[in-house]
Design a protein around this nucleic acid. Structure first.
Length: 522
RNA sequence: GGCGCUAUCGUCUAGGGGUUAGGACGGAAGAUUCUCAAUCUUCAAACACGGGUUCGAUUCCCGUUAGCGCUACCA
């Protein structure tokens, strides 16, 4: 394991001369290192840039970050980009875009492709120690699963037993080979590790195949590169998806062969689709991509909150948790073992129907938890980008009227639309007609309202008094009076409370819209 | 096929040898305000199945089933 003391490196270091990891204790400042000696917690998030950042990866990132922050540890971001065939810049950008939106940050950043020398050295060392062998079998083409190769293979016969002399000779002659790990066979040995989530794990070495370390083009495989970097970067805890649980045996083997000690593992249950299948962009569309949530108007803190509740629980009845509350509450013990369904709807109609209802609800909770000026500041760019060049002041006045009426930030565009235009788009004139009334009554109400509002101060209380008085005079219920006015100024029945709305709209706009409605009624 | 992981309301989960199996979302009904929303109240809704162990299992063990993962010179 790796320790570090403020600013001083303590832990495993790769010793190129002796082909192994060695313990190092803080160089010149050894005495101080000993003084402050404590285990430094280091975690990493290691996405491979072969696609956009998806929600499962985001959750892995978040859990790592939470664990680091909870324990005062270090968060490492490492791009696992050893698959040159499939890596794309677009993917790298998408991942950073997603992570930036999450706004959690990280402390150190690495790229595996810049560390190939280290990987090869370690592969060489493992080979020199006899834990690996050259496999000159030509690479399989295509998907072996589909080509009917369902039988278990554990090693390539003939290659494992190749003498060192012959192996060297064929390698020297330029024959391509993959380097495979020589897993102990027929020894009744087993590989074990303790997983912080899944408990004690044991597997017979005989059931582990001779996995590749190096491809025939000399590039490291994921297993090798990942483990080599984990040791070199002194990662203390590997928190990752459960799809790696069975790979972990191989990793333990690599850690041990490289002369290091395996870190602590914690595997996370997977996020799956409503039909329990794996989340995939091809099958489930954009709902699996983090940026989709951003673009739909989720707030990062709500999205993070939602993801944390998938496969983890604070063990009390809290649902809405702030970033800090999550940091405080997070622990590996709270992680579940069963896969969690992201309950989105497959055929997407409206954004609200697409996403997991709980995510939407949490977002509305976080919106309501925001101070008006803060919420207003988040809403403003969304509105401006959509067209209307509202002023900051006006947005600030509108915000309290819609805060409890929007679930996603983008809902501001539909909830406050009538504040953003000079003239209302056409609406159904029949909407102007109040309960138990007709067009004539609506016209009467609007005419009256026009008169009253022309001479009323545009403040909540005066408006309230004046309009209620007018209703009484006309012998109408308040609701019958308010509806025609509301529809006249908002263009629809469902809108924020009337007096506040009129106050923000102002006398001029209000009267103009009432007049238009009055004309339309004829 | 082989190896492994998992199984509590529709979904996320709490719980754990004796409980009215708790909470949340979503759903339904009602209250309330000028509509909507918010809020409040109430209701419906779960321990996958079969064997053990036990005085007693949803909880522990075994099996079945189902889902998922790994089984690539992908990560």
């Amino acid at each position: 394991m790796v320790t570090k003391v403020t600013g001083i490196r303590v832990g495993f270091d790769w010793d190129a001369r002796h082909h192994q990891f060695r313990w190092v204790l803080g160089g010149r400042r050894r005495s101080r290192a000993l003084l402050y000696s404590r285990v430094m917690l280091r975690v990493r998030f290691a996405p491979s840039p072969t696609g956009f950042l998806h929600v499962g990866s985001a959750r892995t990132f978040i859990f790592n970050w939470l664990y680091a922050r909870h324990n005062g540890g270090t968060m490492v971001l490492r791009l696992d980009d050893t698959d040159v065939e499939r890596n794309t810049d677009a993917s790298v950008n998408s991942i950073f875009e997603g992570l930036r939106w999450l706004d959690l940050g990280w402390d150190e950043e690495y790229k595996q492709s810049e560390r190939l020398g280290l990987h090869r050295e370690i592969a060489e060392a493992i080979f020199q120690k006899g834990h690996a062998y050259r496999d000159f079998t030509p690479a399989h083409v295509g998907d072996t699963k589909k080509s009917g190769a369902h039988q278990t293979w554990l090693f390539n016969p003939g290659m494992r037993e190749l003498s060192r002399e012959e192996s060297d000779r064929r390698a020297a002659s330029g024959e391509p080979f993959a380097l495979r790990f020589r897993v102990p066979r027929g020894t009744a040995e087993s590989v074990r590790f303790a997983d912080a989530v899944y408990g004690e794990q044991v597997k017979a070495a005989d059931d582990i195949e001779d996995f590749a370390l190096l491809r025939s083009d000399g590039m490291p495989t994921y297993h090798l590169a990942s483990c080599a970097d984990d040791v070199d970067l002194r990662i203390s805890h590997i928190i990752r998806g459960q799809d790696h649980l069975s790979n972990t045996y191989k990793h333990v083997l690599i850690f041990e062969a490289a002369g290091g000690k395996a870190p602590q593992f914690a595997h996370l249950p997977l996020l799956v689709a409503p039909d329990w299948s794996k989340l995939s962009k091809r099958r489930h569309g954009p709902v699996v991509s983090v940026t989709t949530y951003r673009d739909a108007g989720f707030m990062p803190e709500a999205f993070i909150n939602f993801l944390c509740l998938l496969g983890w629980s604070p063990k009390d009845d809290r649902e809405k948790l702030s970033r800090q509350e999550l940091v405080d509450a997070f622990s590996l013990e709270g992680i579940n073992r069963a896969n969690a369904v992201v309950n989105f709807k497959e055929p997407a109609a409206t954004p609200e129907e697409t996403f997991d209802p709980k995510a939407v609800w949490l977002n509305s909770e976080h919106i309501r938890g925001l101070a008006i000026d803060e919420l207003s500041a988040r809403l403003l760019p969304i509105v401006r980008e959509a067209g209307p060049q509202v002023t900051r002041e006006k947005m600030l006045a509108i915000t309290p009227l819609i805060r409890e009426r929007i679930k996603l930030l983008r809902d501001v565009l539909t909830a406050a639309d009538f504040f953003f235009v000079d003239q209302l788009p056409p609406y159904d004139v029949n909407e102007l007609i109040p309960q138990k009334g007709n067009a004539a009554l609506a016209a009467k109400v609007l005419a009256c309202a026009g008169e009253v509002l022309a001479k009323t101060e545009f403040q909540h209380d005066p408006l309230d008094r004046a309009l209620r008085a007018a209703a009484q005079e006309l012998g109408l219920k308040a609701g019958q009076m308010f509806q025609p006015i509301r529809v006249a100024v908002c263009g629809r029945k469902n809108a924020p409370p009337l007096f506040e709305t009129l106050e923000v709209l102002g006398r001029e706009t209000t009267l103009a819209r009432i007049d238009v409605a009055f004309q339309n009624l004829k």
